[in-house]
Design a protein around this nucleic acid. Structure first.
Length: 109
DNA sequence: GGCTTGACTTACA
DNA sequence: CTGTAAGCCAAGC
């Protein structure tokens, strides 16, 4: 009806990320596919423009290797890591998420 | 309208 | 496991 094309990929991505259940994670690639793009980088690009006080759970987005996409030791890494831990996400290593990362399916431990 | 930049991914060595 | 290369495409200048 309305030619509201204003719903940019940018908005769509954030919308999807908002729907990731607490305690679960998704990959950039998974989200990219959901919004209909073949470029997972755009997901990261969208998240990068979020403000610090955003309500979007950006920290629930990790890369396809099951890791946080920030250099270990960086502030962003520490923040994301602790937020995930706080939600019950478990790590095998300091960086590898011990969950099934495809979509936000149940943690099959 | 063209060129550069990416919080990525997959493939291969 | 690590490292390098090519592909992908919206946003911003």
């Amino acid at each position: 009806m309305n030619h509201n094309r204003k719903n940019t990929l940018f908005e769509s991505i954030l919308n999807i990320v908002r729907q990731i259940p607490k305690g679960k994670v998704a990959t950039y690639g998974q989200i990219a596919t959901m919004v209909g793009t073949q470029n997972p980088r755009l997901v990261g690009y969208a998240l990068a423009s979020l403000k610090d006080d955003t309500t979007v759970p950006w920290f629930r987005v990790i890369n396809s290797r099951g890791k946080i996409s920030f250099p270990q030791g960086s502030d962003a890494f520490k923040i994301q890591y602790s937020l995930l831990i706080k939600e019950g996400v478990r790590f095998s290593d300091k960086n590898i998420v011990n969950l099934k990362i495809f979509g936000w399916s149940e943690a099959n431990d």
